Amino acid sequence: MSAEKAPLPFGYTFMADSGHTGTGGADHYNGMLDCFRKIIRNEGFSRLYRGISAPILMEAPKRATKFAANDKWGKFYRDLFGQQTMNQSLSVLTGASAGATESFVVVPFELVKIRLQDKASAGKYNGMIDVVMKTVRNEGILAMYNGLESTLWRHILWNSGYFGCIFQVRQLIPKADTKSGQTVNDIIAGTIGGTVGTILNTPFDVIKSRIQNTVRVPGQTPKYNWAWPGVATIAKEEGFGALYKGFIPKVLRLGPGGGILLVVYTGVMDFFRQMREAKM
């Protein structure tokens, strides 16, 4: 993430992962461009941006939590294992832990976004606040954390791939002698990390959307309830390719977004570091 920049429209266009598997008509999309055309033709251009409030509000706390948790977990694991510097294994472990931490911030926003964006449920809600009120009233306050387990897996895999690749790529490419050279290196490392993270976590993004878009009915066990069994069910019933529905728009967003995120984070941290040194 939304890395992961503001997820619309690329984060929205393939709602095939929300559980709709129609084989024809306006609801069936044959690719990213076909999805764009049909949504605009049948629902209007503004539909591409439905549910944008939740991801916009999520961005700042999500990014802050991601990198703050990564720094804290990195220090914790270095002390735990007696390492003075980070290595590949610690980078993956630290990223996974940061992803798990980040998930607790993300889940309610993601649930609101999914329910607003899916065509089958969007008509039930008048906006972000309405989703929250109706979900809490009809399903209970804990329903705002539906999909927590699948979100944990999604963010553990993305962050471990992202931070692990950043470490490895930085070791492999020549060290930069200038600030602009370092920026290029960060874009390369972050883009590769974002791409690998997306390859790893897309199946869990698919199942997360289906879980969060399922209204809980007392006494009934939903079809999609837990991440790994849900992934197995999709693969069995729809084929392995169904686990990667929406992969192209997602990787177009999160691959380059991973590079931009790393550059912005590095720049901001350098700025504050310089301010602190100037005061001293």
Rank of each mutant, 00 (worst) to 15 (best):
S160C: 06
K66W: 11
L152F: 14
D186G: 01
Y12E: 12
L93G: 10
S160H: 06
F240R: 12
K5N: 13
D34G: 00
M280S: 15
Q168P: 01
M128V: 02
D205T: 13
G258N: 01
L116M: 13
G99Y: 04
V263R: 09
H20A: 14
M275G: 03
F167A: 03
G161S: 02
L252H: 10
R154L: 15
Y224E: 15
Y125R: 04
K38F: 03
M58G: 04
I141F: 05
E4Y: 13
G95T: 11
I192A: 08
G147N: 01
A96G: 03
K5I: 15
V268K: 02
H155R: 09
K223T: 14
D118F: 15
Y29L: 05
R273D: 15
N185M: 08
G147K: 00
A122H: 12
I199L: 13
H20Q: 14
L243M: 15
N87C: 01
D205V: 03
I40P: 06
S46L: 08
V92L: 13
G194V: 05
D79V: 00
M128H: 00
T178L: 00
V131K: 12
G11Q: 09
I114K: 12
R47G: 00
E149D: 13
I40L: 01
M86T: 09
Y77N: 08
P61H: 04
R37Q: 08
T23L: 11
T151R: 09
P174T: 02
Q171K: 11
A278W: 06
A232G: 01
P249N: 03
K5Q: 11
R137F: 07
F271L: 10
D34I: 01
L80N: 03
V264K: 01
G140D: 02
G127Q: 11
L152M: 15
C165D: 04
Q168M: 15
I188R: 08
I114C: 14
R273E: 09
T178Y: 05
G31S: 02
A143N: 08
R210C: 10
I52R: 12
F240Y: 11
G193H: 04
Q171G: 14
T266W: 07
N201K: 11
E277K: 14
F163P: 01
N126I: 03
T221M: 12
S46N: 11
L200P: 07
P61E: 09
S121M: 07
A6H: 10
A100N: 01
Q220L: 14
E237C: 03
F67M: 06
F14V: 14
Q84W: 02
Q220Y: 12
G259K: 08
M133Q: 13
G194C: 03
G181V: 09
T214F: 13
K208P: 01
S89A: 15
A26M: 12
G44C: 00
K236M: 09
G95Q: 04
A3R: 11
Q171C: 08
I211P: 10
D71I: 08
A120M: 13
